[in-house]
């Protein structure tokens, strides 16, 4: 189990979702991916994507104008 980071700053949806999806393909069960983004739309799109594909958003936090969404990979 490990934690990974994905820089999706300045990307507009659905790009952060696509990048998350592609990154998660490389990760293992239980890994955590922190997606750093600036488009607030990601806050609804990434959790929706995770629900559909069986992964879990375990939390999110805001930092200035950045949003960090943590997804736990489930295989």
């Amino acid at each position: 189990m490990s934690t990974h980071e994905l820089d999706a700053r300045r990307m507009l949806c659905p790009m952060p979702v696509i990048k998350t999806q592609n990154k998660i393909k490389e990760l293992a069960d239980g890994d955590i991916l922190d997606v750093i983004c600036t488009d607030p739309g990601a806050l609804s799109d990434i959790p929706a994507w995770a629900r559909i594909n069986g992964h879990e958003v375990v939390g999110h936090r805001e930092n200035d104008d950045e949003l960090i969404i943590s997804v736990r990979v489930s295989r």
């Binding site: 949806c13 739309g41 609804s44 799109d45 559909i52």
Partner: peptide, 28 residues
């Protein structure tokens, strides 16, 4: 060019609009 996504986050007055991505919504 998809209508989905991006512009919704840019303009002020769109902030309250539903921000769902319709393809994701449909899949759900």
């Amino acid at each position: 060019f998809c209508v989905e996504g991006h512009t919704h986050a840019i303009r002020n007055h769109d902030k309250d609009k539903q921000k769902r991505n319709n393809a994701l919504w449909a899949a759900e």
